[in-house]
Design a protein around this nucleic acid. Structure first.
Length: 195
DNA sequence: TACGTGATCACG
DNA sequence: GTGATCACGTAA
């Protein structure tokens, strides 16, 4: 029930944080509706590599990434999908973790309604799908993860390191050789991860 | 494999 | 202003 403390997010190693977020619970409280899911897949982004939105410096879109660790970075992708990221590191260091997949936990009926899905299967198995199911919109961009609308808590499943697999990140061919970094983490053999 | 969809960014 | 681009999802 306890929200992760700022100290969790403000550490320097974004790759380690992405790994540790597997098994934690992402919760939203939007329109007086509580919905949540266990984080099953993440990706780390660091302002020192080409895959990151902040690689070339601050812009109107990515400026919340330069804030202190522990806030949400939500942006629109391909004109359709909203992407939910957790900003990490200290103020001025623009690192973030993309949340890519969840195992639905609380408010499943409401999540199915929001996503106009037929069932729980693959309801939150992708970064654009989970934001729809949890009601995450751009109004949450820049919001603190210690606030009352969106947060992460430490009551998912117990995860050991050998249950997590790492692989290259998805959809960032433009990053050249940085696209090969094994900075995507997912729960091994899970039906809840993206394809 | 193809493409919808609209904000964003680098131009100048 | 304008045009290329894009951390996806679906359908075929």
């Amino acid at each position: 029930m306890t929200k992760l403390p700022k100290s969790f997010y403000q550490r320097q190693d974004v790759v380690k944080i992405a790994l540790e977020l597997i098994g934690k619970v992402l919760v939203t409280n939007v329109n007086e509706t509580l919905t949540s899911g266990v984080i099953m897949e993440t990706e780390a982004y660091s302002d020192r590599e080409r895959g990151c939105h902040a690689y070339k410096g601050m812009t109107a879109r990515n400026k919340v990434m330069f804030g202190e660790g522990g806030i949400a970075y939500v942006y629109l992708c391909y004109g359709i999908h909203r992407m939910m990221n957790v900003v990490t590191n200290k103020k001025g260091k623009a690192d973030a973790v993309l949340i890519r997949a969840l195992k639905p936990l609380v408010g499943i009926d409401r999540m199915i309604e929001r996503a106009r899905a037929n069932s729980i299967a693959r309801l939150t198995s992708g970064p654009g799908k989970l934001t729809k199911a949890l009601g995450i919109g751009r109004e949450l961009n820049g919001q603190s993860l210690k606030g009352s609308d969106i947060w992460i808590q430490d009551e998912g499943i117990n995860v050991t390191k050998h249950q997590i697999v790492s692989s290259p990140r998805i959809g960032i061919d433009y990053a050249g050789e940085d696209a090969l970094l094994p900075w995507r983490f997912s729960f091994k053999d899970s039906e809840w991860v993206s394809r």
